[in-house]
Write a protein that binds this DNA or RNA. Structure first.
Lengths: 207, 207, 207, 207
DNA sequence: CATGAATGAGCATTCATTCAT
DNA sequence: GATGAATGAATGCTCATTCAT
């Protein structure tokens, strides 16, 4: 008797969106049919519309959950007192964190956000650009503090790091033996130290 | 010489595929209609079928051109006599090279290859895995030769580098001031040296 | 007497039908949804079915009330001893009378009766034809008695008068300054005297 | 060889709209399905969309044709030099004229115009009000010129006459023995002379 | 070469209706 | 009395594809 029937309405709606996220991930937004979603749930297609008003709205909700807290976490890290090296590590960790429990949402956001209705898409675009700038500024601050290479191309590097993390979502959970910790560790190490052995380091600009 | 009416059929067919690549890039394979493609060309929808037999086949051709020579170039680099450091740089350069003149094809390959018919998709998947392994083996050879960090996670690092390059296609040509050389230079530098200043380098495994 | 909880069920049912009449009037039978009706009442769509068994049945009830007493009043007038001129006036008054308190019902009857199930529709059609004949016979009797023009086309004129009244329902209650009395007076006057000034009357067949 | 293939595209489109007008007339706009229209034509439902872009647009085109020239004809009559009596007759004739060859279009306009998209509906509403005013002004001028009754309620009478004509569309072509000329003659006579025999005329306001 | 016409298959969405609670 | 949940049967519309010309 204790705790039960907490939120039956929301519960079911969440299941529906979950199924939609999975299907949109697998087939793409336009390649997926509402019938596909219904099949996953074992209900009739028409029943979906009791829970969400349109396919497009479902996409919007999925994308929203896919980036929920993303910017906020990055901001908190950027504003912290840690040295640049820790911040970079933390940013990579934070970027990949939602993959643990919302992989499909994140992937749908990354691949299908372009199909959001115009207004939403533009808003999302602005958030993405803010996110990029936060990472870039962490790098810039690191350079200024002498913690990072003086000749670092902060803009390109920020985009490279973000891209690296985003691309990982494509094989996250599929690549054998690649658990979360290993991925984060390797990415952080690459981002901080590169691949070269100590003595072979190219201290000047390459080329 | 006399380059008269050399290959008018092929010429036009190439324009058609070009238009399809552009449209598939912008709208996604399933989001794009053959009408969209026809609009770009200023011809009627039905006329497209004079040049390619189906939308799916057009996707296949685009994807093929998107990765044309990719594996071969990587193989040539991997087999070369250069030290690991040069090979890594060359691989990144080679990976991004097609973006200069076939950006839409590359992007369509990356985003839409999943919608290829099963047989083709699996073949492409195998090629991709071979490509990953080539990069990975370059790294492994570099470690063995002492040119790269002993504790390098070659598999993860290979995937990270590839992902970084692939992700770049999303903003390649759009990001202001980011010309080809700058992108390649920054990516190579990150891959080789990371971001840390020399004295702050973490010679042991991070964490 | 004691009108305690006399008819709470009927009361509510009447409100439901009222709302349906309003909505059917505004949107048309097929253009209106049961959700629209529920919205007007502030209840859930499913709750409607507690009161009426189907949308079609609701239409039937509305149409019935829309013509309730219509034929009976016309019959009473036709059978009365008054001269034709009074009967015509009374018929017009009677025709428009229900607009005072059941406008939506009357309008729905006029516009949506065609969508009634076959059996009902045919029965209603028969009533309508009887009504037309009653009016026509009043005119014919008037002609025979010398009260009305000898050359009157009784059939056409009956239909014209009825049509004039029915058409008025479209703007009844909307047309500014057109109160019930004014409408009836104008219609009666037109039906009796036409528009021409006395000396310009065309006593012979026009044209 | 002589004359042929004149306008095959427009010809077919006109047939489609013709069928739609007939079906919308019979079933009402919302009660009619595009399948119904296709059935009348003996083609597949999807083929309709080769000729018109939406059901709503078909309604718009039908309504447009239903009132084509209506206002213009009324204006020409109103501005003419004839006495009021002739103008009234001409207006009634003009109002009913399109029923001869476009009955379904006129009926659909009258019954379904409310379902036009907002912008179109409002534009049509304005035209209707202009039309009413034209008729009303003809009556007012007639009163001023002494041709019509001094106490005529011009507004109500205009609406009554228009309503009478519109209502006739409901049985036009169905009512036995009611050919065009008979209808027009009866309506004109009623509008001019009313129903009363000459000696029984009520020269003062009735009541 | 290219197109106008047409279509089969499918798609998102709507809606009246049911029913257990 | 009333409702939340679900559904069957459309419905308007899209789209890749075909084919005679």
């Amino acid at each position: 008797m204790a705790q039960r029937s907490a939120d039956p309405p929301k519960r079911r709606a969440a299941e529906i969106i979950d199924a939609a996220a999975e299907v949109f991930d697998r087939r793409g937004y336009h390649g997926a049919t509402t019938q596909d979603v219904a099949n996953v749930l074992g209900i009739r297609q028409a029943s979906l519309y009791y829970y969400f008003p349109s396919k497009e709205e479902a996409l919007a909700q999925i994308c929203e959950r896919g980036v929920e807290g993303h910017l906020e976490r990055a901001l908190a890290i950027a504003r912290g007192p840690e040295p640049a090296r820790e911040k970079i590590a933390a940013l990579i960790g934070s970027h990949l964190a939602p993959m643990r429990d919302r992989a499909a949402y994140v992937r749908v956001f990354l691949k299908e956000r372009h199909h959001l209705p115009d207004a939403t898409r533009r808003r999302v675009g602005r958030l993405a650009r803010r996110y990029e700038r936060i990472v870039q500024e962490v790098l810039e601050a690191g350079v200024a503090a002498g913690a990072l290479r003086k000749d670092l191309d902060c803009r390109m590097t920020a985009l490279a790091m973000i891209g690296m993390c985003n691309a990982a979502t494509a094989w996250y959970g599929i690549e054998p033996d690649a658990d979360h910790e290993r991925i984060v560790a390797a990415f952080v190490r690459l981002a901080l130290d590169g691949t070269l052995a100590a003595r072979t380091r190219s201290t000047r600009a390459h080329r």
